[in-house]
Amino acid sequence: MKRSSAQRVLRDVASKVLQNYRDVVGVQSAVLFSADGFELASYAADEAAAARLAAIGSSLAALGSAISAEAGLDEFERTTIESKSGTVTIMRVGDDGAMSLAVVAGRNAVLGQLLWATQRCSQALAAAVHT
């Protein structure tokens, strides 16, 4: 299987894209993960944290798809978990549902700016991965 070399390329490309979060106020970490919960690339998250975020993020994305379908909506695109001390946003990357992005941000983040940056990042990742 070519999985490992293909993954390394993906990791390198996606890691570069995720570096853009350095310029977004309040972002603490970000992880790109497969639909079945494997981390593919990360920003400012150690390996263990990235693995946990990937697993939980994939459950949330799957539940997002399930509730969208249940409600008769289109495919899941994004969900934001809000707490007093910050937010976690899960956004789908690409059209095939194979990957999603989780972004953890602190209270100092501006939600609109964060979502916009995440949209941009998701598009850049989808483009990078599919070329």
Partner: peptide
Amino acid sequence: PVRTEVDNSDRENHEKEYTTVG
């Protein structure tokens, strides 16, 4: 039933097409 199956990308360990994550 409500299902939350997605593509299994871990084919080295499991020859299964889909896996439940929720």
